[in-house]
């Protein structure tokens, strides 16, 4: 299990978490390179299928990082994302995948060290869970 290198996708809002990830870099904070950051205009813009596709395409874990509650630049985008994450956790569990492989976080652009903490927290969690059970089975399908 120790040789397992997870693949973690971090969907980060440009207004907060993406800038926090930048700050973490500027602060020379180290976190596992298995976390790939994808910037989004608002976490509320992340579609259900985008997250599911991330898992189907090989991510072992996904986290969504949006603005602090009450500070979303689009008012409620981060709260919508939270509802979607709750729903997607159920969808994943139904399909036989641990819902804890997906998580939602809230942080501000100034929280560089918190971003590094979150990245470490998710990396440790996914490393503990092991590879996603999908990743051993080849995908097949016109829908993909």
């Amino acid at each position: 299990m120790s040789s397992f290198k997870p693949k973690i996708i971090a969907f980060c809002c440009y207004n907060c978490a993406y800038a926090a990830a930048d700050l973490a870099g500027t602060m020379r904070l180290q976190y596992d390179p298995c976390v790939s950051v994808i910037g989004v205009p608002c976490t509320g813009a992340i579609d259900l299928t985008t997250v599911l596709t991330a898992f189907e395409e090989g991510a072992d874990g996904v986290f969504i990082a949006g603005c602090l509650k009450g500070e979303c630049h689009y008012k409620v985008g981060n709260l919508r994302a939270l509802e979607r994450v709750k729903y997607l956790k159920r969808v994943l569990s139904e399909a036989g995948i641990d819902g804890d492989r997906l998580e939602m976080y809230f942080l501000s652009a100034a929280m560089g060290s918190r971003f590094a903490e979150i990245a470490k927290e998710m990396t440790d969690r996914i490393r503990g869970m092991g590879p996603l059970p999908l990743n051993g089975c080849p995908e097949e399908g016109e829908g993909k």
């Binding site: 969808v91 999908l134 399908g141």
Partner: peptide, 17 residues
């Protein structure tokens, strides 16, 4: 997507559209 993932967890590739 749920159907695909369900079968892939069981090790069975499935074709969906």
């Amino acid at each position: 997507s749920s159907i695909r993932m369900h079968y892939r967890v069981a090790g069975v590739p499935v074709n969906t559209g």
